[in-house]
Design a protein around this nucleic acid. Structure first.
Lengths: 206, 206
DNA sequence: CGAAACCTTGAGCATGTTCAAAAATCGTGG
DNA sequence: CCACGATTTTTGAACATGCTCAAGGTTTCG
């Protein structure tokens, strides 16, 4: 077909992972890349003193574990029960050299991840707590929402470490938005967006 | 040769840029990628309200302008007078399909940038001002230093926007490090590292 | 039903920001 | 070469945003 889909799928191996299970850990040899079939993972880095940064949440259809070096630069943990397809690096390298479609596709995936990560630099470097949470909710709305409601599969701690905030600030910002009628919180995991316009204004995007 | 070097160089066109000149601007059509021959550029994003995030400094040998989309996601400005080699996207795409070496190399470049950017997420999301400046100085020492001294070609404002701080905090942190005998500042642009060990301790890297 | 984990709220605090001004540096022209 | 203005950097003082510490409430799950 040219885009390498058929060749790629042929080398994939399905895998399961329980909640909080680890797909890979920082420092390990990176022998696979993965695509998420179902569930959500957090990709994160840890400080020796316990500080944590969640780089991204990998969700249905997302690729993860593509690395520059031979070793893992971060850890991947299951936020929910997870199913992934694993593509062994060895097979992949062979495909890259034989099928320009696969190389292009991988490059495209890497560049899309690079673009997303750059947006997050702006968020972490220059946005306020309110802007960060607004951006996060809009991102989740886009990725998983039905337009109005979001089911957050990750904890407040995960969100805090994703946004460079504390659990308390995340919680307080949620409460403030609820107070202002921007959203409703039927439960801690369920968010109903009531005023998307305000959320977009508050997200600080141009 | 297989790594695509010869093919790649053949399509490159040299270009010059004066101090503060713009190589490309956010929103423009992305028709080229570039490699820096001499000088330093800042790759940054701007908010409508003037807030700025410097994503990276591109220096000798670095590639920049590789984008997922057809449009520029950021702006590239010359911090010093700059010489680059421009590789037209059209020619590049052709090379990718014909030479697996070029595809591999581009993928490698993109993945290296992704890895660097992920380290910066940790810096912006979780590090203190002192840790940020220490990390920055160590990075500069590695990229341009002779082991002890660094010549900073960028302003305090550029450094602040790179580290997600204000000019004042950057300046104050420099002063504190000078006070503590970690470094000397013969001029604002010249930094002499006097205690690399402490700097590494303070950078918060594991 | 009870324990554990998670989430929310409150009060005081700290880091880094803002606003302001002084000091140093740089470029330019007399 | 020095004087001048412009720009950049440094320093100071007050302030604010988000953090820490602490307690109470809620959900989850065995």
């Amino acid at each position: 077909v040219g885009n390498g889909s058929v060749e790629l799928e042929a080398i994939g191996k399905p895998m399961f992972l329980a909640r909080n299970g680890r797909l890979f850990v920082e420092g390990e040899v990176a022998d696979c890349i993965y695509r998420v079939t179902t569930g959500v993972l957090r990709i994160c880095k840890l400080f020796p003193d316990g500080r944590r940064q969640v780089d991204t949440f990998a969700m249905e259809g997302d690729f993860l574990g593509i690395e520059a070096s031979q070793r893992r630069g971060f850890t991947a943990e299951a936020v929910t029960p997870v199913t992934v397809v694993a593509f062994p690096r060895k097979d992949l390298e062979r495909l890259i050299d034989n099928s320009p479609g696969v190389a292009r596709r991988l490059l495209g995936i890497a560049l899309a991840q690079l673009s997303d990560t750059h947006d997050r630099l702006m968020l972490l470097g220059r946005k306020t707590a309110e802007e960060r949470l607004s951006s996060f909710l809009l991102e989740m709305l886009e990725r998983t929402g039905n337009g109005k409601a979001i089911r957050l599969s990750m904890s407040r701690a995960d969100i805090a470490d994703y946004l460079g905030l504390t659990i308390e600030t995340v919680s307080r910002t949620f409460s403030a938005m609820k107070q202002d009628g921007i959203l409703a919180l039927p439960s801690a995991q369920q968010v109903v967006i009531q005023d998307r316009g305000s959320l977009e204004m508050m997200s600080g995007e141009d």
